[in-house]
Nucleic acid binder design. Structure first.
Length: 587
DNA sequence: CCTGATGCGTC
DNA sequence: GTCGGAC
DNA sequence: GTCCGACGACGCATCAGG
């Protein structure tokens, strides 16, 4: 038996530092959990060291958390702007990091949602997951729940430690994600816990988003707002702010170039008083936005949120190879089509655009094509400030006719009306109306682009369940499950949920619903079918989810029908008919 | 191996 | 994708 | 007018659990 006591973790850490000590133990064959036990360090920190993070030194996370608190404490946007502006000017951290910590954007795809948070909080607080979830229902948000149930420790976390731990999550199995999160939460103070939860969910609930931050940054660094906006659409907000902090001249250097995706320009809903003649009207195709970048033989495709789809849609890459330009960026809609080239319902398209990998069987089942409607870069030249009327001829010279969105010029309301009616009768989603003198403003929603859609039929349906709201809607029933009747089977069949309910109406409905409760379940109250509502929608889809076999896409409440009883609501047969009449127009 | 829960991104 | 609501 | 928060449907990806 050896008389030499092996060195304790303390001694090792003093000799070589915490990180090295952990790695030493791992090297000599200790498992992660054994290192945790031996060192007394929190699990997340051991994992970080295991992943070769050298130092965790940086600003204390508690300082950031109290800044978050101050921000959420002030109500007016002006005040928030001022606080953010001062924070950014302070440069306590690199500017892009500060921006990221305010938008939580880097924490958007961690594979963490309410379920993971519930389990992590349960583990950290030793409450049961059921009780944690019950609190969530009451408060509508997990940050507050964390604040309520964590015991709170005073061990100082650093910003870097939290940042890196969260960024690590996607690479871990779910079980380990829960362990890392709960380790962070056990180490944190209660306020810190609240914001760790919110960061992990990618939503800080500070009452502002990118636009407010952008204005604050333009003030903090004294740069032109338009310039910053433009740079942000191309480089992302964090990078644009970093450039702004160096100097306005850096923003001027940011230019569109093929291969670098940018946020596409968006349209407002049509309003008659917003139309500026002459306009270009175009068919509105029911597909997904797609940016085609071409540079020499290389083609890159990006979605609206800048997700690259080049490998998933090889047909589109092939189409782009045929464009009559060496370099260009074309804005278009990708749609699903049948063998004859006729548009298919949106559902089909999802089977092609959602997968992350290309599979030939899928491609054979659902074909896709594109309908291009704009060009923003051509042979080395940005066309962002070139008016639409000049971009269109360039587009037409680059893109073969079959891949162009159908459109024409209108100079009077009558012509627009005629074009619209024709588009609807041909089964299209509606039309776009664009001012001919408009420039292309990346990332902005402007009134120079308008989308006009037809009013659809309405359906009278009965409310069979009401769901608890979350966040600001906690305590209300903010969404309603609807059903139609089948007179033959004498049964009700669900057709989906609807949620655009004003606070006023929610109050009134709550009183009625509370009289009709059949039973409560985990996410809402099941009701005696009595309250009738009239709803409208964009489209009826086949549904695997609802018992009717159909669901409403983009459903909207029109009004509550106090004059109708369950016996008088619409029937399943009518839903079937409406569905059939849709597909009939399309083919 | 299948199924359900969860998360994500499209509209 | 939509809507309601605050500012 | 602008911005934000709270919501709808779908299908795919991933993973835990039977």
């Amino acid at each position: 038996m050896s008389l030499v006591r092996p060195p304790s973790f303390r001694e090792l850490a003093e000799r070589m530092g915490e990180a090295e000590a952990v790695r030493y133990l791992l090297r000599i064959g200790y498992g992660t959990m054994k290192v945790v036990a031996e060192s007394g360090l929190p699990y997340h920190r051991v994992i970080l060291y295991r992943e070769r993070v050298k130092s965790l030194k940086s600003m204390e996370f508690s300082r950031l958390a109290s800044f978050y608190e101050r921000l959420s404490g002030v109500r007016s946007r002006k005040a928030k702007e001022a606080l953010i502006s001062r924070f950014l000017s302070s440069r306590v951290l690199p500017v892009d990091v500060m921006v990221n910590l305010l938008t939580a954007k880097p924490f958007k795809n961690l594979g963490v949602g309410p379920g993971t948070i519930r389990d992590s909080l349960a583990l950290a607080s030793r409450w049961s997951p059921e009780r944690v979830e019950a609190l969530y229902r009451e408060y509508g948000e997990y940050g507050e729940v964390a604040y309520l149930i964590l015991r709170g420790s005073s061990s100082p976390l650093t910003v870097k430690e939290v940042y890196l731990s969260l960024k690590l999550l996607p690479r871990l199995a779910r079980e380990d994600r829960v362990k890392v999160l709960s380790s962070l939460l056990s180490t944190a103070s209660r306020i810190e816990g609240k914001y760790i939860v919110r960061l992990a969910l990618g939503d800080l609930k500070l009452g502002f988003k990118e636009n407010t931050l952008l204005i604050a940054a333009s003030k903090a660094f004294n740069v032109d707002r338009q310039l910053l906006e433009n740079a942000s659409a191309i480089k992302g907000l964090a990078e644009a702010c970093r450039l702004a902090s160096i100097g306005e001249y850096m923003l001027r250097l940011v230019e569109l170039k093929p291969g670098v995706p940018f946020k596409p320009m968006l349209a407002h809903l049509y309003r008659e008083d917003k139309v500026k003649f002459p306009v270009r009207v175009e068919l509105k195709y029911d597909g997904s936005r797609l940016q085609i970048h071409k540079i020499g033989g290389k083609v890159k495709l990006y979605t609206r949120r800048l997700v690259e789809k080049s490998d998933v849609l090889p047909e589109v890459v092939e189409i782009a190879r045929g464009f009559n330009a060496d370099s260009c960026i074309v804005d278009c809609e990708v749609i699903a089509v049948d063998d004859k080239g006729n548009p298919l319902p949106f559902q089909y398209l999802l089977e092609r655009t959602l997968p992350r990998k290309y599979e030939s069987e899928r491609a054979e089942k659902v074909r896709v094509t594109v309908k291009a409607f704009d060009i923003v870069y051509h042979e080395g030249r940005s066309l962002l400030s070139t008016p639409l009327q000049e971009r269109i001829p360039i587009l037409m010279s680059v893109v073969p006719k079959e891949f162009l969105a159908e459109g024409e010029t209108c100079t009077t309301p009558g012509e627009v009306e005629k074009y619209f009616k024709d588009a609807v009768s041909r089964g299209y989603e509606g039309i776009m109306v664009k001012a001919l003198d408009s420039i292309y403003e990346p990332g902005r929603r402007t009134y120079t682009w308008l989308k006009l859609k037809p009013l659809r039929d309405t359906i009278d349906a009965v409310v069979v369940k009401a769901y608890y709201g979350t966040g600001l809607r906690a305590g209300y029933y903010s969404s309603l499950l609807l059903a139609v009747r089948d007179p033959k089977a004498r049964k009700l069949y669900t057709i989906g949920r609807v949620s655009n309910i004003s606070e006023d109406l929610m109050d009134r409905l709550k009183k009625r619903f509370d009289q009709l409760i059949v039973r409560r379940d985990r996410d809402g109250i099941v009701l005696k079918p009595e309250v009738v509502v009239e709803v409208t929608y964009m489209e009826i889809q086949r549904s695997p989810e609802y018992s009717s076999g159909y669901a409403l896409r983009v459903p909207k409440i029109v009004r509550v029908r106090n004059d109708k009883t369950v016996g008088e609501i619409d029937t399943l047969d009518k839903i079937r008919e409406l569905y059939m009449s849709q597909s009939a127009v399309k083919s």
